[in-house]
Amino acid sequence: MSLMFSWIQFANMDQCVQCPESHYANSEKNHCLQKSVSFLAYEEPLGIALTITALDFSVLTALVLVVFVKHRDTPIVKANNRVLSYILLLTLIICFLSCLLYIGQPNTATCILQQTAFGTLFTVALSTVLAKAIVVVTAFKVTSPSRMVRWLIVSRAPNLIIPICTLIQLIICGIWLATFPPFIDQNAHVEHGHIIIMCNKGSAVAFHCVLGYLCSLALGSYTMAFLSRNLPDTFNEAKCLSFSMQVFFCVWITFLPVYHSTKGKVMVAMEVFSILASSTSFLALIFVPKCYIILLRPDKNSCLDIRNKIHSRRSSHLKFI
């Protein structure tokens, strides 16, 4: 550790004097200079790029929500559970905007909000996807539904998954904040001449518990979507859900080793990029195909088209028989 300190030697003196951690030696090694404070700022190119990306995608998600609300009575919107779609879109808007918490000079409030918002928002998003997958499986995989299954469909009981899963995540975050919460950390040894200010996660165990819980929800969503992968093409949301979960796993499996191998502002930028990438996967893989049909192929967004597809599918099946 002592090798990281700067030393200076005054004129007509044989001994060296160590500069404090907040200073560094000049090129002549005869004077200590104040280190500048550094963080992922809005003014620098990386901060500007991440800010613009987050704002653009939040606006794009809001436009998708407007499209879904405007066409709420069309078959494709009804078939994919309007309420859950609205919840997921609203959550994605806040997810994109939450990236702004990581940009700018951190303080105690933003350090705490970063982790609680990250864990809570993605729990809501993943539990919504899980509820949508359960609805799809329940509605189309059960050939002769029992009274309990019919009650689940009519009462929309799968929607209760969202508050239950979110409550569990809030408990985990509450324990995290009560024991070893995130705090502002200063690192004077990462970059020469700079003091990096960033948020320390506090309890690494709690942080990985939050990630582990999110991965378990994603695994459950992927499993339910995989079970309904062979549904008719008219109701192919299960394929979109499974693809989005695959991208989610790829993003966060890649995130962990890269996150732990980087330092300073790059670490913060990597976390923001992972949030943007996983949120974009939900938006692009779940909602963009539906917007394509709603806006560009309205002829496919009709009950008549659905009946024709089902009839042609049955006819082709009878030929093979």
Rank of each mutant, 00 (worst) to 15 (best):
N200M: 04
S36F: 05
T138R: 01
E43P: 00
S27F: 11
A139D: 09
A139P: 01
F180M: 09
L3F: 10
R307V: 04
N26M: 02
S144K: 08
L160S: 07
F287C: 06
G47P: 09
R314C: 03
P289R: 12
A117V: 07
A41R: 10
I112P: 00
L60I: 15
V136C: 13
M13H: 15
F39V: 08
Q114Y: 03
T143W: 00
L92G: 10
V258M: 13
F10D: 13
K35A: 07
N30G: 11
H31G: 02
S261K: 04
K290S: 04
I87K: 04
H192R: 14
C215R: 00
H71T: 09
G104N: 09
G193Y: 04
D233M: 03
C99G: 15
Q9P: 05
I161V: 13
L304K: 08
D305I: 00
I168V: 15
F96M: 07
L90D: 12
G104W: 03
E21G: 07
D56P: 00
G212P: 04
P75F: 01
K35G: 05
L285K: 01
K70S: 12
L170Y: 03
I253R: 04
P181L: 09
S146Q: 01
I94L: 11
T74L: 06
T61P: 01
I175G: 03
E44N: 14
I196M: 09
A206H: 01
I52Y: 02
I94N: 02
Q114P: 14
K141T: 14
A41H: 08
M198P: 00
L296I: 13
W7L: 10
L97P: 01
V77W: 02
S6W: 08
S302N: 11
Y222N: 06
F282K: 01
H311L: 14
V17S: 07
I76N: 07
N107Q: 09
F207D: 07
I153F: 01
C32A: 06
T51W: 03
F180R: 08
F243N: 11
T223G: 13
V210G: 00
M198T: 10
P289L: 12
T91A: 14
V288F: 11
F207C: 06
L256M: 11
G174Y: 10
T254H: 01
G220H: 06
I306N: 12
S216H: 00
A54G: 07
S22W: 05
L219M: 14
I184L: 13
I48R: 13
V59A: 15
A133N: 03
L3C: 15
E43R: 05
I112E: 07
T262E: 02
I253T: 13
C32Y: 02
N230K: 11
A25D: 06
V154Y: 06
P298I: 14
A225M: 03
